[in-house]
Simulated scan of single mutants.
Amino acid sequence: MGKRMHDDDEDAGEKALRKAGQKLPSQIKNKHKRSAEYAKVRAEKIKEKKQRIRARDKAEKQAVELGEAPPARQVPRTIENTREADETVARPDDEELLEDCNEDEFSGHFSREHAPKLLITTSQECSAPTRRFIKELLMVIPNATFYKRGSYELKQIVKYASNRGFTSMFVVNENRKQPNGLLIVALPEGPTAHFKLSSIQLSKKIKGHGRTTSHMPELLLNNFTTRLGHRIGRLFGSVFPQDPQFRGRRAVTFHNQRDFIFFRHHRYIFEEKEIKELAPVTIGVNSDAKSRKGMPKTVKKNAVVARLQECGPRFTLKLQSLQSGTFDSKYGEYEWVHKPDMDTSRRRFFL
């Protein structure tokens, strides 16, 4: 990795020297002299970058003092802001989408007709890492209950959960004694979503993690922009209660980025901290440069600041399929299935 970064710096340095019409460092046979020339080129590039930043900040400051709009900053090109256009991107004023939301399988939950109740189970062979992961899910999600799978088929468990008033069901699958998949079934009518599960990190592995309380958490759904993403977001929302207890300062986040859904669990912390502020400038009739020079530039002040403390666990989901109705792998009708030929571009996203 380090060698690759060094090669990139050398390529950039050679381009700069070639543009200036100077001798290329790659033409120098002595290794130490060649490295010294590359170091000079890198130092010049860093110096020029700092000068550009200072000039930009100065121009913005002058514009603010004159009451004008500051010059627009250049927006860096990223994979997110150069994504391929998608016709299914949902708009806030989409009346058809609002009508679908009022009539879909989750409308009863969001209209507060019933409280969410979750059943969590596993594949037929359950290892210790999977049980530890489920134990932390039970601490994060309110009204969640674990049932041992045994030798029952999934269709039997779905029927059992529906008859006992459960509104959602999680099935944690595993491979080689490690959890690697999550099946979410909305009850009693579906849909059923299958996710690839990866990058699991339990609470005890997170440095400085906080303790989970029994308060209802606040749910945050980020960047679910398409019709499919909107449906997946409502599926996640149907698992958590609609009345968070803000006194507990808990926040559960599902953040979608490039079709990878990152799960995080935090709590807010408010604490009093000493901060520094610019000292007010008082210019009198008898003030001179020497007296102003001795005055303090900053003053210390006590203020209440907020920060986040991660409680855990953290994991990543990748949607594999979305099926209409409850789980039926043989005769079920799929709304969306991820296929390898769909990954034709790095800038094509579905959620």
Results as ranks from 00 to 15, higher is better:
Asp7Leu: 01
Asp8Ser: 02
Leu17Pro: 04
Arg18Cys: 12
Ala20Glu: 13
His32Glu: 14
Lys45Arg: 09
Arg56Pro: 08
Ala59Arg: 14
Ala59Leu: 11
Val64Trp: 11
Glu65Met: 14
Glu68Arg: 13
Glu68Cys: 11
Arg73Asp: 07
Arg83Trp: 02
Arg83Gln: 02
Glu84Gln: 06
Ala90Tyr: 02
Ala90Ser: 05
Pro92Tyr: 00
Pro92Ile: 02
Asn102Gln: 10
Phe106Ile: 04
Arg112Pro: 00
Arg112Met: 09
His114Tyr: 12
Thr122Asn: 00
Ser123Asn: 06
Glu125Arg: 08
Leu137Ile: 09
Leu137His: 07
Leu137Thr: 05
Arg149His: 06
Ser151Gln: 09
Lys155Ile: 07
Gln156Arg: 12
Thr167Asp: 02
Phe170Asp: 01
Val171Leu: 05
Glu174Trp: 03
Pro179Leu: 03
Gly181Lys: 06
Ala186Cys: 12
Pro188Lys: 06
Phe195Glu: 01
Leu197Arg: 01
Ser198Ala: 12
Ser199Lys: 15
Ile200Lys: 05
Ile200Val: 11
Gln201Trp: 10
Gln201Leu: 12
Lys204Pro: 02
Lys204Ile: 06
Ile206Phe: 09
Gly208Val: 09
Gly208His: 12
Thr212Pro: 07
Ser214Trp: 14
His215Met: 10
Leu221Thr: 02
His230Ser: 10
Arg231Asp: 03
Gly233Thr: 00
Gly233His: 02
Phe236Thr: 10
Pro244Thr: 13
Ala251His: 13
Phe262Arg: 08
Phe263Leu: 01
His266Tyr: 15
Phe270Pro: 04
Lys273Ala: 04
Gly284Ala: 10
Ser287Val: 11
Ala289Gly: 14
Lys290Pro: 06
Gly294Cys: 12
Met295Ala: 15
Pro296Gly: 07
Val299Met: 11
Lys300Gly: 08
Lys301His: 09
Asn302Pro: 07
Glu310Val: 13
Cys311Asn: 12
Gln320Glu: 14
Ser321Leu: 10
Thr326Leu: 01
Asp328Phe: 06
Glu333Ser: 14
Tyr334Asn: 09
His338Tyr: 14
Arg348Trp: 07
Phe349Tyr: 08
